[in-house]
Design a binder for these strands. Structure first.
Length: 206
DNA sequence: TCTACGATCTTT
DNA sequence: AAGATCGTAGAT
């Protein structure tokens, strides 16, 4: 048995969504026997971000995003898929990071049996697959991933250089926000969506 | 109340 | 290229 990596702290999440997003690449999500490694994320930065669920202020749905950092925000998309976000910044800010893709580290076959769905692949590219692999629904909103038990977010191997590009599926946002390079991915992973719109970032890591 | 529409995925 | 499928938000 390998010793578990340390939990990420509330202080880790209590920073700008762009910083947290970059540093979440390579981190692990753990739910019981299931362990996945984060390979792609998007930052939803602030109420002034016209792509964010917080763009129209506080509502029942986006309440978790306004809460303390290090909590989950899970919402239902297209009436079909659950999306996992991790709340960032300070309480009352309204920012989060969407986990778009992961790689299975272990435990996925068990989930496959339990859910009666086909998730055998090691690559889980796309936010709907992430929540499905971890068995998460909207009831997981507000769950602290900085504490042991349930869904946990743990440190992983640090990825120095990243793929960077625009976010996906936000055509309703302003042109500026549509173009904003708020999506980050691990260049070494094949579990990444819309890869052609990402470019390898030069220079220093965050 | 009513209506429109998604931070998607799969199949055609 | 389109259907599935339903909760939310904004309008009425």
């Amino acid at each position: 048995m390998v010793r578990a990596m340390p939990l990420l702290s509330e202080a880790f999440f209590a920073r700008d969504a762009l910083i947290v997003a970059r540093e979440l690449i390579g981190a692990e999500l753990v739910r019981d026997e299931v362990v996945v490694r984060i390979t792609e994320v998007e930052a939803y930065r602030h109420p002034s971000d016209s792509a964010s669920h917080c763009r129209m202020g506080r509502t029942a749905r986006n309440a978790p995003m306004w809460g303390p950092p290090g909590r989950a925000y899970v919402y239902l998309c297209y009436g079909v898929h659950s999306m996992l976000n991790l709340v960032t910044g300070s309480e009352g800010e309204g920012a989060a990071v969407l986990v778009r893709s992961v790689e299975a580290v272990r435990g996925i076959p068990t989930i496959e049996r339990r859910r009666g769905r086909r998730i055998g692949a090691r690559d889980l590219a796309g936010p709907g697959k992430v929540a499905q692999a971890l068995g998460l629904g909207t009831a997981w909103s507000h769950h602290p991933v900085i504490e042991a038990g349930g869904l946990e977010c743990r440190a992983g191997e640090r990825v120095e250089r990243l793929l960077v590009g625009p976010r996906v599926g936000i055509d309703y946002a302003t042109p500026r926000d549509r173009r904003a390079p708020y999506r980050f991915a691990d260049p070494a992973s094949t579990s990444v969506t819309e890869r052609s719109t990402l470019r390898l970032e030069r220079g220093r890591a965050s």
